[in-house]
């Protein structure tokens, strides 16, 4: 297995980030792995990390009494999981569960925040990338709010 320093520049999230910045964020990173159904984090816990998924699949989910557990989103290799480390109050708002055996690089959120404060240029670059992920997920969530494939948006060629 390649080292974190070797792997990270190839990850879509970090692609194009300069070598200096790369070594800065690398200092906050560690390899982690999760067995199937193991939680990466739980709703309400302090959000002190984020995850770059290397393999496997992570479900972002929420549990409600009676309704049960609903998976809202999944993240696969190449995706990142978690942005609450960047936004006060730094608490997880959903559960993140490994759907299958999952490997990831985890970053210490506090460590990263401190480095962003010290190096605003790198901080801006990192924030911009997180915003891109947040935006993609927000847009997808908004479209899914339409319940396009539900009865009201019955899909193709079945109008009456």
């Amino acid at each position: 297995m390649r080292t974190i320093e070797q792997y990270l520049p190839d990850h879509p999230f970090f692609a194009g980030l300069g070598a200096d910045a790369m070594s800065l964020v690398g200092g906050c990173a560690a390899n982690v792995s999760f067995a199937a159904d193991e939680f990466l984090f739980r709703e309400g816990e302090p959000a002190d990390r984020f995850f770059v998924i290397r393999r496997g699949r992570v479900a972002i989910e929420v549990h409600a009494p009676a309704a049960g557990t609903v998976v809202l989103d999944t993240a696969d290799a190449g995706d990142i999981v978690g942005w609450s480390w960047l936004v006060p109050p730094y608490r997880w708002l959903f559960d993140a569960r490994a759907v299958e055996a999952t490997g990831a690089v985890t970053f210490d959120g506090r460590c990263l925040r401190d480095k962003c404060e010290e190096d605003p240029r790198m901080g801006y670059e990192l924030t911009r990338r997180v915003i891109q992920v947040m935006s993609d997920r927000l847009v997808a969530s908004r479209v899914r709010l339409l319940d396009l494939y539900g009865a009201a948006g019955a899909g193709h060629a079945a109008p009456r």
Binding site: R57, G68, V71, E100
Partner: peptide, 11 residues
């Protein structure tokens, strides 16, 4: 939308 038993993608 997927139930927890769904091992595929959600999105």
């Amino acid at each position: 939308y997927g139930p927890p038993s769904w091992a595929g993608r959600v999105g």
